[in-house]
Design a binder for these strands. Structure first.
Lengths: 329, 329
DNA sequence: GTACGTAATGGAAACCATTCCATAATGGCG
DNA sequence: CGCCATTATGGAATGGTTTCCATTACGTAC
């Protein structure tokens, strides 16, 4: 590999001039510039990134730490991030978290290793210790689908979104509406399900409807889990007339189970999902659509702003999910 | 940030000794080592990555270039890769390709930028120019779901897998078996669909069955696409008794359409998929299961071997898909 | 007692780009 | 014609690590 020194010699200029041509900083005589550019081409020169990083103290790398990479929501956000980063000089480092141990490992090592310029955290709640560490290491951070007073974020108002969904069901005349979600407590301490449950309660309360513990199910985050919970609900002495599922995956399970039990949807049982995954339009699922790619895009935007000059106050964006009325509710 | 020099002064040793402690290379007196380690702790020292990279010429970064990040197959392979890389010191850079232009951009820039030590390419066929460039830049490369004589790879035998699937249908007594896949020609030049079509032909030929162009559909890669193609097939004067879909997404579309048209599956029409996506067991889809995470894991393994010492001959692994008999065929 | 191998250590050189200061050349203006 | 501002340019210093060579100290074998 050619070095800047060799290019300089070859073009009969100093290294400073070559550097100025590469980074087109300050004034270089057009003729000189042309000579340098020819030398670069002839020697097939590319600046050494490591040397550059050493002196500029920039890695041109953005870290993305996210749980459960394979789930549609996270991949879609990631895709939005990737698309937004593409036209920039930054590369994307991904860190997939599947257990609390790995979570801790990353949050302890990442800030300190000096391998990223900025960090995007998806869905994982930040503890104060994490925030302090990131701040100490001067790593601009953005939370996607999360919130912390000191950190810029682009979140979803899950309470309001759920309330919208449940009020839609109420508006369609339903009075016995069940709630179904993934686990309310797991080791990674996700907040989503809890927030959606709160939104559900808020909607009921706002319309003077009672909430019953037996109408609230939470369980494993799979299609099958949705099916099982639906069985529970339908076997109730007084079963619900509508089910709000906090994720489309569960809603699909519910749909499947309802059909298998010979119920008509939405006449006998209405089903509403959350997420609007790729499959949703195809099975005609009424659901809440989250702007996943947009969240990723906006997250990158917020991070880039911080990468320039840290604004005094962290910006908190809140996006709203929109209701997509289809055939199941 | 503390530097190695400060640590050395603080521990009253030379920088060389500190370096030896950090990288536990060669002999350091236990007492000295302890003193250095204490100094490191007290000064909260972490080696500067950029400086390290500069002198070792290693980035400790592996690039993964893959198309259509959001599709289940790619995410799952990526997850396997991420899991395999986790215990190593390497980080993962992902490059999502959605158009031929972006593909070219990455393949031209990546080798030359000196930001990755090795590259994993998923599904994207390599042109000779790409191979030469990668070789020229001394970037060890592994192909996942791809093949090139000069590059190590872990691939799927899509012809054999498809043949297995179609022969299973033949074994169940089917004689009019349709084929359905994504586009045979698109700008990224994927080979899968073509290979699966070849496997389909081979299976028919081996059992003296005719193949008819009208029984071979290819179209867009969505659930809806599968539905449309199924309509075409079922509207044929002599419709098929079984459909082999080259992906589960299409199979799901077929299933949906068949049910909507009041056909019993598998009695009136048998449906076989390919991939075994998360949804497949839940809708009881008979399909071919690809060891996606395993492909990722094995790809990393092959790359790591090359990262040590380049073996003279590239290793070509071929994994087989396994048939998962369920309720639709 | 001498010679030699081994363990432990210090520190200069090398890695390669950016930055900044010094200097040279040029042009305009009084 | 002299002075100053501006434009171009060269190159040393800088960043922080690893590596390698030189040196010291010590134990062992003859």
């Amino acid at each position: 590999m050619a070095t800047i020194k060799e290019v300089a010699q070859h073009a009969r200029v100093g290294v400073g001039t070559v550097s100025r041509v590469i980074n087109n900083a300050s004034a270089v005589h057009p003729e000189t510039r042309a000579r340098v550019q020819r030398a670069i081409l002839e020697l097939d020169y590319y600046p050494n990134q490591a040397a550059r990083q050493l002196v500029t103290a920039q890695t041109l790398t953005i870290g993305v730490i996210l749980p459960f990479l394979v789930r549609p929501f996270y991949v879609n956000v990631l895709q939005g991030i990737a698309a937004a980063v593409l036209p920039s000089p930054y590369h994307l480092n991904i860190f997939n978290v599947e257990t609390a141990a790995i979570r801790s490992y990353y949050f302890e090592e990442l800030p300190v290793r000096g391998r990223i310029d900025g960090l995007i955290v998806i869905s994982l709640p930040l503890e104060q210790a994490d925030v302090d560490r990131l701040r100490g290491a001067r790593i601009p951070t953005v939370l996607i689908d999360g919130w912390h007073p000191e950190i810029a974020s682009v979140g979803m108002d899950n309470r309001a979104g759920t309330r919208l969904a449940v009020e839609y069901l109420i508006g369609r005349g339903h009075r016995r509406i069940a709630f179904m979600s993934g686990p309310l407590d797991e080791e990674l301490h996700f907040q989503v399900n809890r927030h959606r449950l709160e939104g559900y309660h808020a909607a009921l309360a706002a319309h003077d409807l009672h909430s019953y513990p037996s109408m609230e199910q939470s369980g494993v985050d799979t299609y099958a889990g949705g099916g099982w919970m639906t069985e529970q609900l339908l076997d109730l002495p007084v079963p619900p007339t509508a089910i709000f599922a906090a994720s489309d995956v569960h809603a699909l399970g519910a749909l499947q189970t309802a059909v298998r039990r010979g119920l008509r949807v939405p006449e006998d049982i209405a089903i509403m999902g959350y997420d609007d995954i790729e499959l949703a339009p195809y099975v005609n699922l009424t659901t809440m659509c989250q702007p996943m790619a947009e969240m990723g895009r906006r997250g990158v935007e917020l991070l880039m702003e911080q990468l320039g000059a840290e604004p005094p106050q962290p910006i908190h964006d809140v996006l709203m999910a929109t209701l997509v009325p289809r055939g199941t509710a």
